[in-house]
Simulated assay, not measured.
Amino acid sequence: MSLVSATVPVALSDDRFYVVAVRKLRSDLLNIAVYSRFTSFSARDCRWEIRVADAVDRDAFDSLLVRFGHRPKVVVDDPRGLAAVLTCGGFVATAIAEALIREFLPSLLCPIECVRDVASFVPTFDPGHDLVGRRAPTRRQRGNVLRRDGRRCVVCGRSPANHVDLELDVHHVVPARKAGPTVEHNLLTLCGTCHAGLGEDHDPGLRQHGYLPGPIYDQTTAPLPPMIVDNLVDGIVIDGLTVIGALTAIDRSSRRAC
């Protein structure tokens, strides 16, 4: 499947593509994962990496998907196709032309400080924050996370308002022992029972319960080849409505010009 429009008079196609996956956090926010490469270790924590988006050519993208037997694929080389992908979201193997990325999603090309989260990476989210290395959240952080999650466990939904014996914990999705930063996008609310039931291995799937940015990939079920999944930086959040609005305006002007 290829989202290519014949009505756009000036094609922005390019020989280089960036492989991404898109999912919607809310109607206005998109979570984007981008295939990346290692550049260096972070000066703040040697367990964190600095990664940048890595482009592939069209033939390499096609051969990877054929080799691993993955479908569907989406190749985007015009504004209308990009708008469709950002509007629909979904876990698809999407190759977006470099010209489109540079014009409409330039933040994807910036170096990203990130930490390993099972099969992929998540940004540390706040590179300038002086608390990211703390093991325990501050009182302010704890209060903010509890308010954000409605003062209830994001897994079972129970709240101290309805269960007087219930205690709420603020949990690191990527554990502190695995260099998970103590920032609100890596923290969510769990009751003591759900927290105790997690076991030693952390579960990145908890992010979807708390509507947090970041991966919910499983190497065995992900719709991207394992080598791509293992190099994804996931959890990059963009204002989807702003980008889609700009793309739609271009499409409208192109239609008028035809």
Results as ranks from 00 to 15, higher is better:
residue 228 I to Q: 09
residue 100 L to I: 11
residue 149 D to Y: 01
residue 206 L to S: 03
residue 174 V to W: 04
residue 146 L to K: 11
residue 166 L to N: 05
residue 117 D to L: 03
residue 109 L to Q: 10
residue 253 S to K: 14
residue 24 K to D: 04
residue 94 T to C: 13
residue 35 Y to W: 08
residue 10 V to R: 12
residue 231 N to Q: 15
residue 222 A to P: 08
residue 101 I to N: 06
residue 176 A to Y: 10
residue 123 P to D: 08
residue 219 Q to W: 02
residue 214 G to C: 09
residue 145 V to G: 01
residue 104 F to Y: 15
residue 80 R to C: 04
residue 124 T to I: 15
residue 206 L to M: 10
residue 205 G to F: 07
residue 225 P to A: 14
residue 168 L to S: 09
residue 166 L to Y: 02
residue 9 P to I: 09
residue 134 R to F: 06
residue 148 R to S: 12
residue 206 L to G: 04
residue 94 T to K: 00
residue 246 A to C: 10
residue 21 A to F: 02
residue 200 E to K: 15
residue 153 C to W: 04
residue 163 H to L: 05
residue 65 L to Y: 15
residue 34 V to F: 06
residue 136 A to S: 14
residue 228 I to E: 06
residue 69 G to W: 05
residue 37 R to D: 04
residue 122 V to N: 09
residue 161 A to P: 00
residue 68 F to G: 00
residue 244 I to M: 03
residue 213 P to Q: 07
residue 231 N to I: 00
residue 98 E to F: 02
residue 39 T to W: 04
residue 95 A to S: 11
residue 12 L to I: 03
residue 81 G to P: 12
residue 4 V to Y: 08
residue 223 P to G: 09
residue 219 Q to Y: 02
residue 62 D to R: 14
residue 209 H to T: 07
residue 178 K to V: 02
residue 22 V to G: 03
residue 26 R to G: 01
residue 38 F to Y: 14
residue 138 T to I: 06
residue 67 R to K: 12
residue 50 I to L: 14
residue 215 P to N: 02
residue 258 C to R: 13
residue 134 R to P: 00
residue 43 A to M: 06
residue 175 P to Q: 14
residue 54 D to Y: 05
residue 40 S to G: 05
residue 145 V to Q: 02
residue 95 A to D: 07
residue 246 A to R: 15
residue 132 V to K: 13
residue 56 V to C: 11
residue 207 R to A: 14
residue 16 R to T: 06
residue 89 G to V: 06
residue 131 L to H: 05
residue 159 S to W: 04
residue 57 D to E: 13
residue 179 A to W: 04
residue 250 I to M: 10
residue 141 Q to M: 14
residue 199 G to Y: 09
residue 94 T to F: 00
residue 72 P to W: 11
residue 115 V to H: 05
residue 4 V to S: 10
residue 181 P to A: 11
residue 165 D to A: 10
residue 223 P to L: 12
residue 232 L to C: 01
residue 6 A to V: 11
residue 40 S to W: 03
residue 167 E to P: 00
residue 14 D to C: 15
residue 208 Q to C: 14
residue 74 V to Y: 07
residue 142 R to I: 10
residue 150 G to D: 03
residue 6 A to T: 13
residue 174 V to T: 12
residue 49 E to Q: 15
residue 6 A to G: 04
residue 184 E to S: 11
residue 201 D to M: 12
residue 236 I to C: 08
residue 5 S to M: 03
residue 201 D to S: 15
residue 248 T to G: 01
residue 246 A to S: 14
residue 103 E to V: 12
residue 89 G to M: 09
residue 28 D to W: 12
residue 195 H to A: 02
residue 22 V to K: 02
residue 106 P to L: 08
residue 107 S to F: 08
residue 129 H to P: 00
residue 184 E to Y: 07
residue 69 G to S: 02
residue 156 C to L: 02
residue 224 L to A: 14
residue 239 D to M: 03
residue 193 T to W: 05
residue 192 G to Y: 07
residue 234 D to C: 15
residue 165 D to E: 10
residue 103 E to W: 07
